[in-house]
Design a protein around this nucleic acid. Structure first.
Length: 726
RNA sequence: GGGCGCAUAGCUCAGUUGGUUAGAGCACUGCCCUUACAAGGCAGGUGUCGGGGGUUCGAGUCCCUCUGCGCCCACCA
């Protein structure tokens, strides 16, 4: 079985690696690790042994939530509540003093044989006289005490409940706090015990139990309802309710509670000082978005026990321990044998503890390996240590730990993130990273969470094939951090357009040829464009520093479209040389400089197209280049120049469009009226505007507001039309 | 029951410490073969900023409240 698992894993790892490579994520593949690989097992087992040595890991024999299909215990973090249909059953208990009956409501009548006591609130006036007395259970005729406990809710059911071992976690609390006996009947196979338990002694009780023996919970419930109805001890019909029940998150039947010996790691669930320390750690983590800390707080504050890490599975990282056996071959769980850390990873079912030989395995006075494996999160919670070389590369570890950032989705804050904080707190006394970047889920177009079982999942590889990696990353990069995001192939198409535009724009800019060495942007428009770009670099850098990648992308994109639509169109003619050599060199230098920066700004979002165009005029990959620095751009330019110029250009285009003319059509005359500042801007770019607009006669004059008059001659014969645009 | 998020154009969303007439893309419509790009370009209409109240010279933005949607957590007889 284990070898089959390894086969599946090997295949999956290849598929995942292909996917990650295709996504263009910059991974140093020489540092690849897998959570089931040797390095991870070594780190996982070593960390556990160190937890054990410091008392942070311990074993306990206690009632535990257990999945009867998976046949394993599960941790609180892997459970979820589901609303399922159930029914209240009103049962009659008989007072031992013969003074009448007592009725209770239960949703789990099948556990009646496991009843150990009755409980009501200490202040409930209805039951004051019964506290301290005993009652007999229906069918089984077992005497159980009537007790008081503050958790009993007078408003629920009849105000008095039967305590069974174990119907729910409240039963466990009552059982523990009221020192009750254990009468568990549901076994690891999820069925009622085959033999009549010793506490059922009456012939009628034995007869009743024999009809339940070996049944699964649901079958047992149907049967006992039959029996109770026959005996007249059930009042009325079951009353249907919908109530929340605990399930294993991947399970199909409700969890049962069984008493079993398991391993735990302290996580504050039973220790207020540790809980507060971990809350404090979480508060020091920089959360992106910040409100995700609330989920951490909710989770840590709501813990009701330590972290159960042992699992009854065959494939996983083994718990690296052995136990001595007594002369009758019973394991002595307090006589733990630990391996030499140098030998890790080990499988205790194969390896022998020091001082023993394999022929002593399972023999009287010998030893036995722990049969369980660790929860997958017990290993995943150590990924910063595994990746950072905690066990095998102390030099690397010293340099990279704590790590910068944990990227993950919000649904595993309780598992991956919290578990990692717990392990780092115990082992290193610090947070494992400085920042946590929490993403949302991808939702289908109907805003439903994607899941394989619902069949609405879109695999990333299909999207990458259909739209290209850059397009998919553009869509993903436009989504705000932490927010669930709908798959939007429309956005991907826009991303693809952007990538195509970058190819075309680069081809065009490079087509002008390289300006001579030493040529620098000098024209006012060129300097203004570069000044605007400098602002974009600043803003984009600041946004990324704050993990606001969507803003960084948006700002760069907005600039780039303006750059293509307006700036390039304005300087096109000049760059071709229509205004002389010097003017051309200024434009060409500015175009190249801007493109050089823009490509680097886009590189994290559109890794493939940026790398492609970069190599058209640079050596090496854009992804090895430094991030652009606004200070290196010409800062002499006046950004305020740009708005009036773009406005005049738009007015010309509008006039041509409204006259149903080609944008190439000649403007006979244009008059721009503007206040002094705008007028100066238009004046400074007059030659570029004239060329781009095809303007024959261009007049400027003072005015209160910017106003552009455009006179056109339609290409075909027709009346002269005067368009006025604000 | 406790906590959190969201609500802005038909759709998806920007809107930064309160500050001109609230923006973008998509969709829709029209025009244009234009020597980077027709798998393209240019241009155009579109709003009770969820409701109500308050603070302020000024509120999409701050405060209170209500409504709707979504998520997390909770001891579920």
């Amino acid at each position: 079985f284990v070898s089959l698992c390894h086969g599946v894993i090997q295949n999956d790892e290849e598929v995942f690696e292909q996917l990650v490579r295709r996504l263009g994520i910059s991974i140093d593949w020489s540092l690849l690790y897998t959570t089931i690989g040797e390095r991870a097992q070594r780190a996982s087992q070593l960390a556990f042994l160190r937890n054990l040595a410091r008392g942070e890991a311990y074993q306990q024999d206690a009632p535990t939530l257990y999945d009867i299909d998976e046949r394993t215990v599960v941790a609180q973090a892997e459970m979820e509540d589901r609303d399922v249909p159930g029914a209240y059953h009103k049962l009659t208990f008989h007072r031992s003093d013969g003074q009448g009956d007592l009725t209770i409501d239960t949703t789990r009548p099948e556990l009646l044989a496991s009843c150990v006591a009755m409980v009501a609130h200490p202040n409930d006036p209805r039951y004051q006289s019964l506290f301290g007395s005993t009652v007999r259970t229906p069918l089984f005729e077992v005497e159980v005490p009537v007790l008081a406990h503050h958790l009993a809710d007078p408003d629920k059911g009849t105000g008095i409940a039967m305590i069974c071992t174990f119907g729910d976690t409240t039963d466990v609390t009552w059982w523990r706090e009221l020192n009750l006996p254990s009468r568990a009947l549901i076994g690891f196979d999820g069925r009622m015990a085959a033999d009549t338990p010793p506490w059922i002694v009456s012939p009628a009780g034995e007869a009743a139990y024999s009809q339940l023996a070996g049944l699964a919970p649901k079958q047992a419930q149907r049967k006992i309802v039959e029996l109770l109805t026959e005996s007249g001890e059930m009042i009325g019909e079951p009353r249907p309710v919908t109530h929340p029940v605990k399930f294993y998150e991947r399970g199909s039947r409700p969890l049962e509670i069984v008493a079993t010996r398991q391993w735990y790691i302290r996580n504050g669930g039973r220790d207020e000082a540790l809980r507060n320390a971990l809350l404090e750690r979480g508060a020091h983590l920089r959360w992106h978005p910040a409100y995700m800390y609330n989920r951490y707080q909710n989770w840590v504050g709501g813990l009701n026990g330590d972290w159960l890490i042992s699992r009854q599975r065959f494939f996983g990282v083994p718990i690296p321990l052995w136990y001595r056996l007594d002369d009758a071959c019973n394991p002595l769980y307090d006589q733990i044998l630990t391996p030499d850390p140098e030998q890790l990873p080990i499988d205790p079912s194969v390896a022998c503890p020091e001082g023993f030989t394999d022929d002593q395995r399972g023999k009287p006075g010998g030893f036995i390996g722990d049969p369980d494996v660790m929860d997958t999160w017990a290993t995943s919670s150590l990924t910063p240590q595994i990746a950072g070389g905690w066990v095998d590369d102390p030099d690397l570890f010293a340099r990279v730990f704590p790590m910068d950032m944990r990227p993950q989705a919000h649904d595993i804050i309780r598992t991956w993130l919290f578990g990692s904080v717990v392990r780092s707190h115990h082992e290193h006394g610090c947070l494992p990273w400085f920042d946590a970047a929490i993403s949302g889920w991808i939702l289908d177009p109907d805003r439903k969470k994607m899941s394989k079982s619902k069949g609405n999942a879109v695999t990333p590889i299909d999207l990458l094939q259909d739209h290209g990696t850059d397009a998919v990353r553009y869509w993903a990069g436009s989504a705000r951090a932490g927010v669930d995001t709908i798959v939007d192939e429309g956005q991907m198409k826009i991303g693809r357009k952007l990538a195509t535009k970058l190819l075309n724009a680069t081809k065009f800019v490079l087509g002008f040829g390289e300006p001579p060495a030493g040529a620098t942007p000098a024209a006012a428009l060129d300097l203004a464009m570069l000044a605007r770009l400098a602002e974009v670099v600043d803003e984009s850098t600041r946004a990324l520093d704050e993990y606001d990648y969507a803003r960084a992308l948006e700002r760069t994109e907005t600039f780039f479209w303006w750059f293509c639509d307006d700036y390039v169109e304005l300087v096109k003619g000049r760059a071709y040389g229509t205004q002389g050599e010097d003017a051309a060199h200024s434009a060409r230098a500015a175009l190249r400089q801007a493109l050089d920066v823009v490509v680097r700004l886009f590189a994290p979002f559109l890794p493939f197209v940026t790398d492609e165009v970069w190599c058209w005029w640079h050596e090496g990959s854009v992804h090895s280049e430094s991030w652009p620095d606004a200070a290196t751009l010409a800062t002499l330019g006046d950004v305020s120049l740009l708005a009036p110029v773009s406005e005049v250009l738009a007015a010309v285009r509008r006039a041509k469009t409204e006259s149903k003319l080609s944008q190439r059509a000649t403007v006979d005359e244009m008059v721009v009226e503007a206040p002094p500042a705008a007028l100066a801007a238009v004046e400074a770019t007059r030659s570029d505007l004239s060329e781009a607009g095809g303007i024959a006669e261009f007049t400027l004059r003072d005015g209160a507001t910017l106003r552009t008059e455009v006179r056109l001659t339609p290409s075909s014969s027709g009346p002269t039309d005067v368009k006025t645009a604000q």
